[in-house]
Design a protein around this nucleic acid. Sequence first.
DNA 1: TATTGTTTAAAACGAACGTTTAAAACTACC
DNA 2: GGTAGTTTTAAACGTTCGTTTTAAACAATA
Lengths: 217, 217
Amino acid sequence: MTSSTIDRILDAAEVEFAAHGFVETSLRTITSKAKVNLAAVNYHFGSKKGLIQAVTDRFLGPLTKNLQTQLSAYEMALTETQGDEQELQVLLGILARSCQQVAQQNHHSLAVFARLINTAYSQSQGHLRKHLTKQYGASFMYFMKLLRRHMPPMTHEQFFWRFHYLLGILVFSISSSEALLAICEREYASSRSLDQIMADIVPVMASAAQASIIGDS
Amino acid sequence: MTSSTIDRILDAAEVEFAAHGFVETSLRTITSKAKVNLAAVNYHFGSKKGLIQAVTDRFLGPLTKNLQTQLSAYEMALTETQGDEQELQVLLGILARSCQQVAQQNHHSLAVFARLINTAYSQSQGHLRKHLTKQYGASFMYFMKLLRRHMPPMTHEQFFWRFHYLLGILVFSISSSEALLAICEREYASSRSLDQIMADIVPVMASAAQASIIGDS
DNA sequence: TATTGTTTAAAACGAACGTTTAAAACTACC
DNA sequence: GGTAGTTTTAAACGTTCGTTTTAAACAATA
């Protein structure tokens, strides 16, 4: 209760970052929406960069934890070995649902998270990407290892790229979801939800993961 | 020759936009790299927004033209009807090669183009996306129509989303290519090129396009 | 050559940004 | 109740940005 200031800043920052990006969102609009003094951001987070990192950590921390437990449960449960297609869908479904669960439990915006990953990777010089890989890279290695079991044989390098192709489906769609959902509603009079999108994406990712390698590297 | 100023600005802007994004790139660095006076941007392009639009039009104009001719040739050549998988690869290969050709012929950066599309869609309120769809949307409808012929039966809405899933593979990978290529070189001592990435992506996109619909909308 | 229209040049403007500062307000503990 | 530590407040700082302005340089025409 003492420092609801911090939470209010994080909540407002998340919303604004999701709507307008990191650079185009000023600390003044964040602190204004949070009903908090401007200096509070620098006092509690050190800098704007620190705030951005805090917003990401507030999502990625629970996400990696959630993902880890669900993947452990997946490995424990010795199910009948199905086809690779099904296994891939199960694994990617775990990832998708993990994102959704963490987002819902902590009242986070999935879009801002996707946007964050997107901008983190787009900036070749981005310090954020390095922070993310340093901090959470290991946690995702486990997932990637499980995933690779059911994918066509390929080199580490090829898998690296393939994984990012799959990531692109997720990240681009979710980070563009606001615009796409609006278009969809106007064009097709549809009221589709992000949850449906997440469910739709899983088999598409699984299919993309299974595409066989052509030529050699 | 009289206005090489315009071209020098466009060239420099493209490079800087690709490297640091649109918001983080100042007109001062652009005009400095272009060896042009600061005021030249506002004189020739009206505003920074006008410059961004000019950079995109310089790519999308030739691209749509190139794509149109190649697709017409594709439709004219009455080849033996192959499987959907092959046809999809042909069509998506045309798109990929069209992007590469236009980029190479006009000395454009594929990365900045992908980044542009990425940010255009990420900003739900973005005027750039509306400009792009208004200006070039019709040209891409034709491509989408051809593509859909060889995809599983689905509603217009489902196809809309599926198409953007495929787009995500392309856009995310290319706009992150700078960072990913650097990681790849450091981690796997590989000197992969963007051209190879583009070729790799095609069958993955084709596979994603073919994933069958589950459940109903 | 004089004139007109176009392009470049240098300088400044006003606004918005992240950050810092210094005092005030608040909290908790002795 | 006074005191030490923490948080909040209001104001200002210095920078950088996109844009504008005014004049100079240039180009083309008659």
